[in-house]
Design a protein around this nucleic acid. Structure first.
Length: 926
DNA sequence: CGCATCACG
DNA sequence: GACGTACGTGATGCGC
């Protein structure tokens, strides 16, 4: 456990509380468009003072997430009397969030918990680490937290609230405040308390009896008959009240304390915010920070259209200047140039930085100059290379490390996971980070790709220099270390500058477009988790793969002869064209042409049909294809993918590729390792644990079907899951009217196919094809299904309608998935869009859930003192490498984190369940 | 480089 | 009446 929190004094700002105080305490103000902004001004001003005058080095702004909280489960009436917010205050709620972002301060909220609980939790965490805490609020409900090391500050009066002030208010020391509140109640929050007892009496009673429980136990001793009676009659109400007023200090918060180190505001974000709201006094005060004198501000803004200034950094002096500038600005775009797209085998060649404006630099570190022979005379053995002037790599790393690890400097990257892995290889743990690729992904997922070239075109109307233009293409392509420094400068510096500008264009959109939560609580924290998994890799048994490969090879040779024998001539079995000609022309099997290529279709379904008619050739070909696939894609390719340094396989997870929010895996893809056939499953035995360790695999049971039931609010299905019943059997029972007892496995199989087909919006045609039944039967099944589960039908219709109207659909966690094809004229594409729209919320919510589990996993394991490492994710499954002695405990922690991954944001009406398996290999564990 | 095929959830 | 027909991925080999 690291206790390295980068600040000494943490200010926890009660954002929700402040806005009300400011609204009533500051005279009305409006900005030019008439929007009231008095509370926003007060808030912004207060935060600026906090960070500048108080020199606060740690600040977090905490908000209430919504109206509901766990307290309503305790007492339904809690806060039920709250009047609506005044009309002039309502538009200011969103602006306050913007202000927080503009000041580059973290804003924290969690569904199900009030701001007060989050404040209590963070205050406790900070105190445990020896950090002083000031709670910026005057809310009496927070006074229970005051203790040595934790104080409060009234932001309107600028007054410190310590134990004396709390005593003045409640008549007891802070640690007894909840007992007093429990007795006295609170009409504003609708906490009942005991009738007839106010703060004065409560304080007196608590002082006399010690605490609430003792008082209630000894209530009989009270002399005043009325008071005694009231206390005895309302003991339970008092206990409930105490629960209501006691703040939760162990909320499973997602943002760690370390994230609250104060960061400099980003001028490009703060300036427009202050301008739009016409906060002129603040603009003037911030002029320096926003880019020196106002005149220079104007100059800089103008120069962004001018030619970029790229600097080649070749000595320490120049590098130190850039580092100082980045530190001053608090934000820097970073990009690495390497020798490979595979981060685990790449060598760092250079680093580019940009701090905005029109400036960027490139720091070459490991370039090789191919000398143009003729002048020096040293160059004899053609192609001998020497190094151009560069800062020694180790020295540059040493200088950059403090900046890249500085919690008060935001590092921006485009696909920064890659750079994080590169830096990690060089001993640098980059933090905190923002990723323009992920910003684009959460804002415009499904609309287009999220590569830098595309984003630059789209948002900046700028055509980037292509990698091919500097490194060449095809056979003559060279690695980046062989690119000349002038070309490398133009290419690399541009990448950093574009990244900086993309950040300025995209980040401010998060809050107004309501994507801040998805970005901040899911995608951004996941980057580090994935980077760690990729670096860890999984051990692969090369000799085993080799033997398997030879075995497949032998059988392929035999099969090949048999196939050629039956065909009567040798041909390339792997060529669908040649195979089709052999099957349908030469042997005259029934079948037809298909597809634009004009060739016969020879897919597995066709061959299976032919095989069922008793033809031997298709059977042999199917077997050949299976083995050929296993050999080329798995047993052969995987051996080549074993990293020579680590002896392990390191996949790469793409976080911004799948439109639904899923991850994808490549190089190699470890999300499609065979499992469905016995032969294929053997490949899983090649993935093994280190000696003394086991592999643990935990997968969600039927997540997507559970989510369909949940999202569609389909009670019949929900009940089945709540009761833990066999969902496919239930479906069969409903659709075919078959008793569940002694059900024919074939019937259940059909129901299973229907269940999955539904998730994808399958038609009668598709179901008929996948079950090999008539279309009429398929249609009857589907009709019966919708008849029994009308909620599903309704969900499908409503989702299509929503997608047509808005062009996107949403997951339960608020992720937007754009489905542009839904409004196309071409009915085929439109239908395609509709099916995608139906599926996306389901697949996407499942993706959100497992991502949440993954983010929490390292901390959960650490807290349980377990050293297991998460290695792989396969959509609904997580794979860990676990010390043998910790298997049981780890299994429980992992399951619990996975099953509770929706907490506390979302309360599903059905449980999620996860099943664990353990083994020496992945095959055994599954 | 597009297409067909097939591996996974 | 025809058209097409289940969502989301990545890797491989063929053939142009």
């Amino acid at each position: 456990m690291t206790d390295n929190v980068p600040f000494k004094h943490l200010y926890l700002v009660d954002g929700s509380g402040y806005i009300f105080r400011a609204f009533f305490g500051i005279p009305p103000m409006t900005r030019p468009d008439g929007t009231p902004v008095n509370a926003v001004f007060g808030f912004t001003n207060m935060l600026l003072k906090l960070r500048d005058d108080m020199e606060a080095d740690g600040i977090a702004v905490i908000f209430d997430a919504g109206r509901s909280s766990f307290r309503m489960d305790i007492y339904e009436e809690y806060k039920s009397h709250r009047p609506e917010a005044p009309e002039d205050l309502i538009p200011q709620f969103a602006l306050i969030r913007e202000a927080t972002d503009a000041l580059n301060l973290p804003q924290i909220e969690m569904q199900g918990f009030e701001a007060d609980d989050l404040i209590a939790t963070y205050a406790r965490q900070a105190k445990e680490k020896g950090i002083d805490v000031t709670i910026v609020s005057s809310d009496k409900d927070l006074m229970q937290l005051v203790e040595p090391g934790i104080s409060m500050m009234d932001p309107m009066k600028n007054k410190i609230i310590g134990p004396d002030e709390v005593f003045e208010k409640f008549g007891v020391q802070p640690d007894k405040v909840v007992d007093v509140q429990a007795l006295a109640g609170d009409s504003v929050d609708n906490v009942p308390g005991v009738p007839g007892i106010g703060i004065k009496t409560a304080a007196q009673l608590i002082t006399e009896y010690g605490d609430l429980e003792s008082l209630l136990e000894r209530a009989g001793e009270i002399k005043q008959p009325k008071r005694r009676e009231k206390l005895q009659d309302n003991a339970e109400m008092a206990r409930i009240s105490k629960q209501l007023v006691t703040l939760k200090q162990d909320v499973p918060v997602e943002v760690p304390l370390e994230g609250f180190a104060t960061r400099e505001p980003v001028a490009e974000v703060l300036r427009p915010f202050l301008e739009v709201n016409a906060f002129r006094s603040l603009l003037a005060r911030m002029a320096k920070r926003l880019g020196d004198t106002p005149m220079e501000v104007a100059d800089e803004a103008a120069s962004e259209d001018g030619d970029p200034e790229y600097e080649l950094v070749q000595d320490e002096e120049a590098l130190v200047k850039w580092i100082a500038d980045a530190k001053l600005k608090g934000t820097v775009a970073v990009d690495t140039e390497t020798t490979s797209l595979d981060a685990m085998s790449a060598n760092l060649v250079g680093i580019s930085l940009s701090t905005g404006g029109n400036k960027a630099c490139y720091i070459p570190l490991d370039h090789i100059a191919i000398s143009e022979s003729g002048d020096g005379g040293l160059d004899l053995l053609g192609g001998s290379a020497d190094r151009p002037k560069q800062i020694p790599k180790a020295r540059a790393i040493e200088l950059l490390k403090p900046l890249l690890e500085d919690p008060s400097v935001l590092k921006i990257g485009q696909n920064i996971k890659y750079d994080m892995v590169i830096f990690a290889q060089n001993g640098i743990s980059v933090s905190p980070v923002d990723d323009t690729m992920l910003l684009s992904y959460v804002l415009e997922g499904g609309m287009h790709g999220h590569g830098m070239d595309e984003l630059a075109e789209l948002h900046l109307d700028h055509t980037t220099i292509k990698f091919k233009e500097v490194a060449g293409t095809g056979k003559s392509q060279v690695t980046f270390d062989k690119v000349s420094l002038d070309k490398a400068l133009d290419y690399a510096a541009e990448d950093a500058l574009i990244t900086y500008r993309l950040h300025a264009a995209l980040k401010p959109r998060l809050v107004p477009e309501k994507m801040a939560t998805v970005y901040e609580t899911i995608e951004r924290p996941l980057v580090k988790v994935l980077a760690d998994m990729e670096q860890r890799g999984i051990k692969a048994d090369r000799p085993f793969l080799h033997r398997l490969s030879n075995n497949f090879a032998q059988r392929l040779v035999d099969l090949q002869s048999e196939i050629h024998e039956i065909a009567g001539e040798p041909f390339t079995i792997g060529s669908p064209k040649q195979l089709g000609e052999v099957l349908f022309d030469k042997l005259g099997l029934p079948g037809g042409k298909k597809g634009k290529s004009g060739s016969y279709s020879t897919g597995a379904d066709i061959l299976e049909g032919l095989a069922a008619e008793g033809h031997t050739l298709p059977t042999k070909v199917l077997e050949w294809r299976q083995l050929s696939k296993l050999k080329s894609t798995y047993t052969d390719a995987l051996q080549d993918q074993i990293n020579s340094k680590t002896g392990r396989v390191h996949t790469s997870y793409a976080q911004a590729v799948a439109s639904t929010g899923r991850l994808s895996s490549s190089d190699p893809n470890l999300q499609n390792i065979p499992v469905r056939t016995e032969e294929g499953r053997k490949i899983r035995d090649a993935f093994i644990a280190e000696d003394g360790y086991k592999l643990l695999s935990v997968d969600y049971s039927q997540v997507e079907l559970r989510l369909v039931a949940e999202i569609a609010k389909e009670d019949a299905l929900r009940q089945a899951f709540i009761d833990g019943q066999d969902i496919h059997a239930i479906t069969a029972h409903q659709v075919f009217d078959t008793p569940i007892e002694g059900m024919d496995p074939m019937i259940r199989r059909q129901a299973k196919a229907i269940n999955f087909g539904i998730i994808y919006g399958q038609s009668a045609f598709g179901l008929a094809a996948s079950l090999g039944i008539s279309r009429k039967d398929a249609k009857d099944y589907i009709d019966a299904y919708f008849g029994r589960f009308p909620g599903i039908k309704r969900y499908m219709e409503e989702t299509k309608e929503f997608a047509h109207k808005y062009g996107y659909v949403k997951t339960l966690f608020g992720r937007h998935i754009h489905v542009p094809s839904i409004n196309e004229k071409n009915p085929m594409r439109k239908n395609f869009g509709e099916r995608a729209a139906i599926n996306a919320p389901i697949q996407g919510t499942a993706a959100d859930i497992i991502k949440r589990a993954m983010i929490r996993m390292p901390t959960a394991l650490d807290n349980a003192d377990l050293s297991a490492k998460m290695l792989l994710q396969v959509h609904d499954e997580l794979i860990f490498e676990v010390p043998e002695a910790e298997v049981e405990a780890t299994s429980e922690v992992v399951r619990s984190v996975m099953e509770n991954a929706c907490d506390p944001v979302l309360k599903l009406s059905i449980p999620l369940t996860a099943d664990a398996g353990v083994g020496r290999s992945w095959g055994e564990a599954h």
